[in-house]
Simulated assay, not measured.
Amino acid sequence: MTTRQEQLEAFSKLLDIMDTLRAECPWDKKQTLASLRPLTLEEVYELSDALIKEDMEEISKELGDVLLHLVFYAKIGAEKGSFDIGEVINRLCEKLIFRHPHIYGEKRDLSELEVKENWEKLKLKEGNKSVLGGVSKAAPSLVKAYRIQEKVRGVGFEFASSKDAWEKVEEELQEFKEESDPSKKEMELGDVLFSLTNYARLEGLNPDTALERSNAKFIKRFQAMEHLAKERELTLSELTLPELDGLWEEVKKS
């Protein structure tokens, strides 16, 4: 591990490298806020994948890639005369201090829930017109649902227990089953997913992480099934559903 001084020197070195690349590298010189955006999203998803796998070496690598993008955006901001990395960091520090009065003001022992509730109240004091104003419009739907529910919990709009939340899931499932209009059925499915997300959250589970783990598990098993079929000189598309199910059960047991 590095010392605080070594960390500061490393960050300073990164800023120097960014200055040089922006001035001398043809590719880096061409980049804009818009051109970097899709690349940043890709890097964040790669970091997300490493986090789910809890691969510490990969997490370290992907954090570096994300940090590069943050420094790149700040460099472009400085070139436009809008902001620089120092302003970005100072603004962040001010916000963290303001939103943690129990640490930086009169020290108080608060529970995690009380801290989150206080956080939302302080955001409203900062000028946010709505508790939901901080929910990213660009976030994936499942992540957005989770964040919406977290935010409204901060002002007390919450089920009393996960049991009550599950009753809501069952209610929405029944409405989904009974709806025959295709356009309305889609809305009812959305209600099912939203209520199931709420139940998962109250149970201490992250539905996005859970679904991603299931995706990874399915991919692994299906690819194993493809490998098994190839070993037996079978073509998956030519097999019946019972035959496919048979292969699937084999790989599940292996």
Rank of each mutant, 00 (worst) to 15 (best):
E170N: 02
E171A: 01
E171W: 02
E172P: 06
L173A: 12
L173G: 08
Q174W: 08
Q174P: 01
E175G: 01
F176S: 05
K177Y: 12
K177P: 08
K177R: 06
K177E: 13
E178I: 10
D181H: 01
D181G: 00
D181A: 07
S183E: 14
S183C: 00
S183D: 08
S183Q: 10
K184I: 04
K184S: 10
K184H: 05
K185C: 04
E186F: 13
E186K: 03
M187R: 04
M187S: 13
M187W: 02
L189H: 11
D191V: 00
L193H: 12
L193Y: 13
F194Q: 11
F194W: 14
L196Y: 10
T197M: 08
T197W: 09
T197H: 09
A200Y: 15
R201L: 11
R201N: 10
L202S: 01
L202F: 01
L202A: 02
E203C: 15
E203I: 07
E203P: 05
E203Y: 09
E203A: 12
E203D: 13
E203M: 13
E203R: 15
G204F: 06
G204H: 00
L205H: 11
P207Q: 05
D208S: 12
D208P: 00
T209P: 05
T209Q: 15
L211F: 08
E212W: 00
E212F: 02
R213E: 15
N215V: 03
A216V: 04
K217M: 12
K217W: 12
K217D: 15
F218M: 10
F218G: 04
F218C: 02
R221H: 12
F222C: 00
F222M: 08
F222N: 05
Q223A: 03
Q223H: 11
Q223T: 06
A224H: 04
A224Y: 00
A224R: 08
A224G: 02
M225P: 01
E226Q: 13
E226V: 06
E226Y: 12
H227C: 06
L228S: 09
L228M: 14
A229R: 02
A229D: 06
A229W: 01
A229Y: 07
K230G: 00
K230S: 04
E231Y: 03
E231F: 02
E231P: 00
R232L: 09
R232S: 09
E233D: 15
L234A: 10
T235I: 14
T235Y: 12
T235H: 14
L236P: 00
L236C: 10
L236M: 03
S237K: 09
E238V: 05
E238R: 09
E238K: 14
T240S: 15
L241E: 14
L241W: 13
P242N: 05
P242S: 12
E243M: 04
L244G: 07
L244R: 13
L244P: 08
D245S: 04
G246A: 15
G246C: 14
G246Y: 15
